[in-house]
Nucleic acid binder design. Structure first.
Lengths: 136, 136
DNA sequence: ATAATTGCAAATGCTTTGCTTGTGA
DNA sequence: TCACAAGCAAAGCATTTGCAATTAT
């Protein structure tokens, strides 16, 4: 019954209010990458009185606690997804806005090498591919 | 005397006003990646009456004409640089904010492959590395 | 001449915040 | 109990835009 996000909140000492539980539930059940407005819409179905400010505060809190991941794709508002164990990057369909996740170890390795060659250690990175679907 | 950005404006039929010439000049002489505020500051030294709205309109126009490139690095306002012939990506020093450009053909190739494997053709991409300088 | 551009200030869109009331541990 | 969270509306910040005056071709 209790979802992964709630579990992480408990583990990290993040106080679980009714609103946060609802947001946790909605995010756990979301397979996509909703923005704050969309999250607010979804949560509002469960509690029509929840304020969008609370959604903003909660996703920020979750992000700072490493519970969810925030993405700023091109020309859009911030989008969120539940943080996963394995790192992945995104391909965005420029026609539909659909977001596809992918993992490529080779690219990851090369990024570290590039940073190292420049005298840096890689702390974070951002890789987004923007493409259009091949006709067949 | 006439700089590359002005040349491109002429080639693309972008009307050259005094203000645009100044912005073109400042950007041509900038080796870094200034944001609009910074550009406005630099241009203001040449013409103290130029409005920041004009700077916003001009960088947008230049960008749409492919004359300058816009970057939205993490947590910051948009930054601009003169568009170059060869594509490159960026490494951002998370301590100093310094931006280092790099080219890595291997990564470029892998990106295309990833997109292709997912059934897409790559239209655009964004790769940013965030790192901290190695002590020595 | 005249369609495009500027400057200004007001408007926008997303996000954050101050304050008072409510509440989880 | 009482430090913290929620709701509301107002504020913030980067960026865009309407409009009247100005300017490039």
């Amino acid at each position: 019954m209790i979802n992964d996000i709630e579990k992480k909140c408990i583990k990290k000492g993040v106080r679980l209010t009714d609103q946060r539980k609802l947001i946790a539930k909605v995010m756990s059940e979301s397979a996509d990458h909703p923005d704050v407005d969309e999250l607010h819409k979804r949560v509002s179905k469960l509690d029509s009185k929840i304020s969008i400010a609370t959604v903003y505060r909660t996703v920020k809190l979750f992000e700072e606690s490493g519970i969810v991941a925030k993405h700023d794709f091109k020309g859009n508002k911030a989008r969120y997804e539940q943080a996963t164990h394995e790192h992945h990057d995104h391909l965005i369909d420029i026609n539909t806005g659909e977001i596809i996740e992918f993992v490529n170890e080779e690219i990851e390795k090369l990024q570290k090498e590039v940073a190292a060659k420049l005298g840096y250690s890689l702390v974070d990175h951002r890789l987004e591919l923007y493409g259009s679907k091949n006709k067949r």
